[in-house]
Design a protein around this nucleic acid. Structure first.
Lengths: 161, 161
DNA sequence: AGTAGACGTTCTGCGGCGCAGACGATCTGC
DNA sequence: GCAGATCGTCTGCGCCGCAGAACGTCTACT
């Protein structure tokens, strides 16, 4: 009924959704160091075994300095290990331990429930549609991510006022 | 091709999208104190004139202590004013100045371009679908927000391990 | 072989923000 | 009037993104 309320704002919608997701995800991953981020690190470590920590951080979109102490915590909990790369001793391969894989399986089970909780406003078909659209969008954005400088976008938009 | 890559994760997709949106939005709102958050405050102030700062903060999902210095910056730039409420002198009504409304109109124009940039992977029909789904989702989540304690969700999920 | 530059990881410092707690000013119910 | 609640502000804590430096390691060039 409002002329143009804030709920029409894409940023507001994304913010509300993202915050709700974060709270649900952190509740579902309580017990894993780093909560939802720890689970994401664990998931990539278990399923992709990235060659370098930088690659892992870039993939997750988190800062490499944050990944350092996230890995410290996960290592201390014996969920992952930093293995020296014999081919290039600068690199640290991050691999999940057996215990880490168990935690990941349990965390994934709980995350599925948390996601259902967040998406509970939508029916099954709409959830699938939303996931698909988000997937295409994120894939495109992540591919363009390293190159995506605001400067170029600003050139499209033009200077202020 | 991966068995279950991280790009299948809802959280990863949301994170990539949200971060991309934030960067685009902050670039588009450069010049407004508080960047994209300043614009949101300005938008609510101009279009809804909330009775209290608490209501404004709750509506935007930001912390009231953050809103305090966001309003300080916006006030110093003469975009909004804190007006004492004659009915209840504890409250501060936040209203946009004429200059604030001009800035908001310009910012909205630039934000529309920034959104197009973020959503450029999608066709017009898919963008509309995504916006609609996000709108329903955010509306439901925001309505449940104040009551949405992780504890209740955890009861649905069950205890760990 | 030797050296300069590039790369990966870690550490430090800065700034922003969510969160909890405290405080003064103000309103409301008894 | 007075106790308790509410609103706005301030302070302190912790997390995280970002920039920069330091150190070990690899690569390329001479």
């Amino acid at each position: 009924m409002t002329i143009q309320g804030i709920e029409d704002d894409l940023g507001w919608r994304l913010g509300v959704l993202f915050r709700a997701y974060l709270r649900a995800a952190d509740a579902a991953t309580a017990g894993i160091p780093g909560d939802h981020r720890g689970r994401q690190v664990l998931a990539v470590a278990a399923r992709e075994e990235p060659r370098t920590q930088s690659a892992l951080a870039l993939r997750l979109g988190i800062d490499k300095t944050v990944l350092t102490y996230l890995l410290d915590a996960l290592t201390e909990a014996a969920l992952v290990e930093r293995q020296p790369d014999p081919d290039d001793r600068r690199n640290r391969r991050v691999v999940a331990t057996a215990r880490g894989r168990e935690f990941l399986a349990e965390a994934d089970r709980r995350m599925a429930l948390a996601e259902d909780h967040v998406l509970s406003s939508l029916g099954d078909a709409d959830r699938a549609t939303l996931r698909a659209l988000l997937g295409r969008l994120a894939a495109g954005l992540h591919a363009a991510d390293p190159v995506d400088d605001p400067c170029r976008m600003m050139m499209e938009i033009g200077s202020y006022s």
